[in-house]
């Protein structure tokens, strides 16, 4: 009797996440990704400037729909992301352990914290207006109300060194208020970002709300910072490029969240610190009379 040959595992292809689809880079390029200890893990898509522009187009297209949803609905969808992540936590934990070079136990903690971060920001969605906005007691017969609105398309540079928790900690606060995002994953450790994209794609998040690019920060960040249809930037992972990117952003007067002290995104109760910078306040007046 012949022996059954050992089964060959089906490996994953790590692709970009743009407009709800998983394209390879239009450039056809990829780059090898290694674990923290240097062993080869996989090839990731090496996104190009054109991929940045495509992602911005997808994000802009998704903006009216996403910002027009009720805050309750956005909160439900962010909670659904947490559910999807929880269901794939072993996969995330293995990838985070390899990417961040942490123990299996620490990787589990990081995944738990990332899942909890989605729950945290899911809960914020329908509370931001009441904390940030409200009625203004003007000295005249007017109804006067200030309401926060999302600023639009936000470019997000995920912090380095925390491939999943760091990324979630900067992405979730941007989209909970109704912004759409173009995120550049940690260049050195992009695989958990792609796995997150797969969770996002199965969590009712409309395509284009979160777009995730993998590749070289120095190649992707400048076209994102200079793009005229990007309204704001989170420079958390900008490193030494921060000043140059802020200057590019000035051309179209983008709102810029500068890199904070190291790991300033790590607080488990960050409040609105990463939400407020991506809000606009709209104040509506109407006379009161008969």
């Amino acid at each position: 009797m012949a022996e059954t040959p050992p089964r060959i595992a089906v490996r994953r292809t790590y692709k970009l996440y743009v407009g709800g689809a998983f394209p390879r880079s239009e450039s056809g390029r990829s780059y090898p990704v290694t674990s923290a200890d240097g062993s080869h893990l996989a090839n990731a898509a090496l996104a190009s400037r054109k991929d940045v522009r495509d992602a911005v187009v997808a994000a802009r297209k998704a903006f009216p729909g996403w910002s027009g949803r009720t805050a309750y609905n956005r909160g439900q969808i962010l909670y659904r992301v947490a559910e999807m992540m929880e269901g794939r936590r072993e996969q995330f934990a293995a990838e985070v352990a390899a990417a961040d070079g942490v123990s299996a136990a620490r990787a589990q903690e990081l995944v738990s914290a990332a899942v909890d971060r989605w729950v945290y920001y899911a809960g914020w969605a329908d509370k931001i207006s009441q904390v940030v906005g409200g009625a203004n007691p003007v000295a005249g017969p007017f109804f006067n109300l200030s309401e926060p609105e999302p600023t639009g398309v936000v470019g997000v540079l995920a912090p380095g060194g925390s491939s999943l928790l760091g990324l979630v900690s900067v992405l979730a606060p941007v989209i909970t208020s109704g912004n759409t995002a173009v995120l550049v994953a940690d260049e050195r450790a992009p695989l958990p970002a792609v796995t997150l994209a797969e969770a996002l794609a199965t969590s009712d998040l409309p395509g284009g709300v979160a777009n995730i690019l993998t590749g070289r920060l120095a190649e992707l960040a400048p076209p994102l910072a200079g793009h005229a249809d990007v309204n704001a930037l989170d420079l958390a992972g900008a490193g030494g490029l921060a000043a140059e990117l802020e200057e590019l952003a000035a051309t179209t007067l983008k709102r810029v969240l500068r890199p904070g002290p190291e790991d300033d995104w790590a607080d488990a109760d960050p409040g609105l610190a990463r939400v407020r910078p991506f809000l606009e306040i709209k104040t509506v007046w109407h006379p009161i009379g008969r």
Partner: peptide, 23 residues
């Protein structure tokens, strides 16, 4: 737009936030 005046225009008040979107 940061300020929307409906059935009025160019009214201001210290209690009412003022400022713009975009550029």
């Amino acid at each position: 737009a940061g300020v929307v005046w409906s059935n009025t225009f160019n009214v201001f008040d210290p209690a009412s936030p003022f400022g713009g979107y975009k550029e």
